[in-house]
Amino acid sequence: MSLPGPKAHIVRLVAVLVGALFAFLVIKEVVTPSSWNYKDWYRGDALALNSSYEAAYGGNQSCVTCHEEVNQELAEFRHQALSCESCHGALADHVKEGEKIGDAVVDDASSWQCLNCHDAQVSKPANFPQFDKEKIEEHQEIEPDMICTACHTPHDPTP
Protein backbone atom coordinates (compact mmCIF):
# COMPACT_ATOMS: atom_id res chain seq x y z
CA MET A 1 0.00 0.00 0.00
CA SER A 2 1.45 3.29 -1.00
CA LEU A 3 1.57 6.11 1.49
CA PRO A 4 -0.68 9.10 0.88
CA GLY A 5 1.18 12.12 -0.42
CA PRO A 6 2.83 14.34 2.16
CA LYS A 7 0.20 17.00 1.63
CA ALA A 8 -2.83 14.78 1.14
CA HIS A 9 -4.22 15.80 4.52
CA ILE A 10 -3.87 19.46 3.64
CA VAL A 11 -5.80 18.96 0.42
CA ARG A 12 -8.61 17.36 2.39
CA LEU A 13 -8.50 20.05 5.04
CA VAL A 14 -8.76 22.76 2.41
CA ALA A 15 -11.65 20.88 0.82
CA VAL A 16 -13.45 20.75 4.17
CA LEU A 17 -12.85 24.46 4.76
CA VAL A 18 -13.99 25.45 1.29
CA GLY A 19 -17.08 23.28 1.71
CA ALA A 20 -17.84 24.88 5.06
CA LEU A 21 -17.37 28.35 3.64
CA PHE A 22 -19.65 27.57 0.74
CA ALA A 23 -22.30 26.16 3.09
CA PHE A 24 -21.99 29.25 5.24
CA LEU A 25 -22.46 31.58 2.27
CA VAL A 26 -25.50 29.64 1.11
CA ILE A 27 -27.05 29.74 4.57
CA LYS A 28 -26.25 33.44 4.89
CA GLU A 29 -27.98 34.12 1.61
CA VAL A 30 -31.03 32.09 2.60
CA VAL A 31 -31.58 33.51 6.07
CA THR A 32 -30.94 37.18 5.28
CA PRO A 33 -34.38 38.81 5.23
CA SER A 34 -35.61 39.36 1.70
CA SER A 35 -36.60 42.96 2.43
CA TRP A 36 -33.10 43.83 3.64
CA ASN A 37 -32.10 47.38 2.86
CA TYR A 38 -28.42 47.06 2.00
CA LYS A 39 -27.89 50.78 1.69
CA ASP A 40 -29.03 51.78 5.17
CA TRP A 41 -28.70 48.33 6.67
CA TYR A 42 -32.04 47.36 8.12
CA ARG A 43 -34.93 45.04 7.47
CA GLY A 44 -37.31 46.87 5.13
CA ASP A 45 -40.30 45.16 6.73
CA ALA A 46 -39.39 46.85 10.00
CA LEU A 47 -41.01 50.06 8.74
CA ALA A 48 -44.36 48.36 8.32
CA LEU A 49 -43.89 46.64 11.68
CA ASN A 50 -43.26 49.94 13.41
CA SER A 51 -46.28 51.62 11.86
CA SER A 52 -48.56 48.66 12.52
CA TYR A 53 -49.14 49.32 16.22
CA GLU A 54 -52.55 50.61 17.20
CA ALA A 55 -52.89 54.17 18.37
CA ALA A 56 -54.35 54.43 21.88
CA TYR A 57 -54.91 58.17 21.91
CA GLY A 58 -57.25 59.55 19.23
CA GLY A 59 -56.88 63.26 19.84
CA ASN A 60 -59.77 65.66 20.38
CA GLN A 61 -61.01 65.15 16.83
CA SER A 62 -61.84 61.58 17.68
CA CYS A 63 -63.86 62.67 20.74
CA VAL A 64 -66.02 65.20 18.94
CA THR A 65 -67.29 62.73 16.40
CA CYS A 66 -69.55 61.38 19.14
CA HIS A 67 -69.53 64.26 21.62
CA GLU A 68 -70.35 67.11 19.26
CA GLU A 69 -72.28 68.95 21.99
CA VAL A 70 -69.16 69.30 24.14
CA ASN A 71 -67.30 70.63 21.16
CA GLN A 72 -69.85 73.42 20.74
CA GLU A 73 -69.45 74.49 24.35
CA LEU A 74 -65.73 74.02 24.34
CA ALA A 75 -65.12 76.98 22.05
CA GLU A 76 -65.87 79.25 25.00
CA PHE A 77 -64.08 77.27 27.66
CA ARG A 78 -60.90 78.17 29.46
CA HIS A 79 -59.73 74.59 29.14
CA GLN A 80 -60.51 74.44 25.44
CA ALA A 81 -56.92 73.92 24.41
CA LEU A 82 -56.49 70.85 26.57
CA SER A 83 -56.56 67.33 25.30
CA CYS A 84 -59.74 65.57 26.42
CA GLU A 85 -57.78 62.36 26.93
CA SER A 86 -55.30 63.86 29.35
CA CYS A 87 -58.06 63.85 31.99
CA HIS A 88 -60.57 61.40 30.52
CA GLY A 89 -58.10 58.73 29.53
CA ALA A 90 -57.08 57.19 26.23
CA LEU A 91 -59.65 56.65 23.49
CA ALA A 92 -58.67 52.99 23.25
CA ASP A 93 -59.86 52.43 26.82
CA HIS A 94 -63.22 53.99 25.95
CA VAL A 95 -64.12 52.80 22.48
CA LYS A 96 -63.15 49.71 20.57
CA GLU A 97 -64.29 48.94 17.04
CA GLY A 98 -67.08 51.48 17.30
CA GLU A 99 -68.42 50.09 20.57
CA LYS A 100 -68.11 51.73 23.93
CA ILE A 101 -66.04 49.48 26.14
CA GLY A 102 -65.48 51.64 29.18
CA ASP A 103 -66.39 54.89 30.83
CA ALA A 104 -64.29 57.95 30.24
CA VAL A 105 -65.40 59.79 33.33
CA VAL A 106 -62.93 61.57 35.53
CA ASP A 107 -62.28 60.36 39.03
CA ASP A 108 -64.37 62.81 41.08
CA ALA A 109 -63.29 61.52 44.48
CA SER A 110 -60.08 63.53 44.50
CA SER A 111 -58.57 66.67 43.11
CA TRP A 112 -55.32 65.11 41.94
CA GLN A 113 -55.91 65.85 38.30
CA CYS A 114 -56.50 69.51 39.05
CA LEU A 115 -53.52 69.75 41.35
CA ASN A 116 -51.37 67.80 38.98
CA CYS A 117 -51.24 70.96 36.90
CA HIS A 118 -52.26 73.70 39.32
CA ASP A 119 -50.43 72.82 42.51
CA ALA A 120 -48.05 75.72 43.13
CA GLN A 121 -44.42 74.79 42.47
CA VAL A 122 -41.28 76.81 42.00
CA SER A 123 -40.55 75.02 38.77
CA LYS A 124 -43.74 76.16 37.05
CA PRO A 125 -43.91 79.24 34.84
CA ALA A 126 -44.87 82.24 36.97
CA ASN A 127 -47.83 83.18 34.77
CA PHE A 128 -49.39 79.74 35.07
CA PRO A 129 -52.39 79.66 37.46
CA GLN A 130 -51.20 77.90 40.61
CA PHE A 131 -52.63 77.36 44.06
CA ASP A 132 -50.46 76.73 46.99
CA LYS A 133 -51.17 74.26 49.72
CA GLU A 134 -52.25 76.92 52.23
CA LYS A 135 -54.92 78.24 49.93
CA ILE A 136 -56.25 74.76 49.30
CA GLU A 137 -56.26 74.01 53.00
CA GLU A 138 -58.17 77.25 53.57
CA HIS A 139 -60.84 75.91 51.26
CA GLN A 140 -60.87 72.60 53.02
CA GLU A 141 -61.49 74.26 56.35
CA ILE A 142 -64.94 74.97 55.03
CA GLU A 143 -65.45 71.31 54.27
CA PRO A 144 -62.61 68.77 54.84
CA ASP A 145 -63.20 66.41 51.91
CA MET A 146 -63.99 69.17 49.52
CA ILE A 147 -62.62 68.74 46.03
CA CYS A 148 -61.93 71.46 43.46
CA THR A 149 -64.72 70.41 41.12
CA ALA A 150 -67.29 70.95 43.82
CA CYS A 151 -67.13 74.62 42.97
CA HIS A 152 -65.09 74.89 39.78
CA THR A 153 -66.36 73.51 36.50
CA PRO A 154 -63.56 71.35 35.17
CA HIS A 155 -64.15 72.30 31.53
CA ASP A 156 -64.36 76.00 32.26
CA PRO A 157 -62.88 76.71 35.67
CA THR A 158 -63.25 80.32 36.75
CA PRO A 159 -60.97 81.51 39.52
Partner: peptide
Protein backbone atom coordinates in the same frame (compact mmCIF):
# COMPACT_ATOMS: atom_id res chain seq x y z
CA UNK B 1 -10.60 13.58 12.81
CA UNK B 2 -7.79 12.37 10.53
CA UNK B 3 -9.95 13.24 7.53
CA UNK B 4 -9.59 9.62 6.47
CA UNK B 5 -5.83 9.62 6.14
CA UNK B 6 -4.79 6.98 8.63
CA UNK B 7 -1.20 6.45 7.61
CA UNK B 8 1.41 8.94 8.54
CA UNK B 9 3.75 10.02 5.81
CA UNK B 10 7.04 10.96 7.45
CA UNK B 11 7.54 13.63 4.84
CA UNK B 12 4.45 15.32 6.22
CA UNK B 13 6.11 15.98 9.53
CA UNK B 14 8.38 18.65 8.18
CA UNK B 15 5.57 20.33 6.33
CA UNK B 16 3.23 20.11 9.33
CA UNK B 17 5.80 21.72 11.55
CA UNK B 18 6.22 24.59 9.15
CA UNK B 19 2.48 24.96 8.84
Amino acid sequence: LCLGITTYNPESAHFDKKL
